[in-house]
Design a protein around this nucleic acid. Structure first.
Lengths: 177, 177
DNA sequence: CGACCATACCTCGGAGTCGAGATATAGCAA
DNA sequence: TTGCTATATCTCGACTCCGAGGTATGGTCG
């Protein structure tokens, strides 16, 4: 997902590592900021895969900055990823939000965008329960402790809100196909 | 967090690995089920740390089962973790839910439970924005594409629902101190 | 009887991630 | 001048994690 996020940000405009770090910190930041030891190796991987190139620009700032820009392959990889919902991990809040953040890059392809949303909707419609007592799931009403009850209530509210948004947005996308 | 979850489940009653796997799949399952290659090494780590012991019971089922039970050190480690909110990563949805799932083990310590909830509430009250355009954050109303707007709307709804629950639960806990 | 599935556990290689630290410059303040 | 902070990048070891595979046994179905 870090890979997707990097490609996603660079699709807007070239950035150097430090700027990218700030963008990533905002996106994932309230969740878990990535460290330098994660970011810079990830950049190198993408570079050696030919998905981005760097151009060193000295003088500008304190330390020499490496401006990163997507190659055509990088741009294609990003869009291909978004176009194949089955390969996207839509089951994790954080990963899903990363997808959502860059789905706009598929502009002009409302059907492809809708397919991604539909996949998430299908996932949300799967019945989920967090706990089992023996063989049967524990619902929000049955949980005797306030904390597990809270979990289930919050999850329910969250899911409902997202499902609403998904449905209305899907309706709009379908109209524009 | 896997460590916390294993200790948390074993606090209720001894389980063998396969049962534990099922419980973990339910808890994290709608997010990302853990694999055997993660679970069994984790069990071994906890074992060699002296936090749990295994007793092999042959005959019962197909393959020999290893029943896992917490040691006193294991139980103490679990409770200590929960009692020190500063050490808990409360900023990630998944991790936070794991904490919430086992906070009931601090029964009889409403003040300690409240401290954990307060930490989460403080985190939620921090202003968060996912995107920057240059230097200024992009709000839900400003986002021109429906997807980033959706992210921000969903995040807002989620946060509001959880904040409500946190406040009412905190009020109840404070009454019982 | 053989095929198959669920139970039950383990190992290995490869990859990603983190934290801590190293390096360097520019600018500002004491 | 010394020191601090922000900019900007990189490396290293340790650890965790995953996927793929391997090894068993017991039960069910045809």
């Amino acid at each position: 997902m870090l890979k997707l996020a990097i490609l996603g940000f660079l699709h807007d405009r070239p950035l150097h590592g430090y700027e990218l770090r700030r963008h990533l910190a905002a996106l994932t930041g309230h969740v878990r900021p990535i460290s330098d030891g994660t970011l810079y190796p990830a950049i190198k991987r993408l570079e050696s895969d030919g998905l981005l190139v760097r151009s060193t620009e000295p003088g500008a700032a304190a330390a020499p900055r490496h401006t990163l820009r997507l190659t055509d392959a990088g741009r294609a990889t990003l869009l291909d990823r978004l176009r194949t919902p089955d390969d996207l991990d839509v089951s994790d809040e954080n990963r899903w939000f990363t997808v959502l953040a860059f789905l706009r890059h598929l502009d002009g392809e409302p059907a492809a965008q809708a397919a991604v949303l539909r996949r998430r909707l299908a996932f949300l419609d799967e019945p989920a329960s967090f706990f089992y007592e023996g063989d049967r799931p524990v619902g929000a009403e049955e949980a005797t402790d306030p904390f597990r009850r809270g979990m289930l209530l919050i999850a329910r509210a969250t899911t409902a809100a997202e499902r609403d948004w998904l449905r209305t947005t899907l309706a709009e996308l379908d109209r524009s196909v």
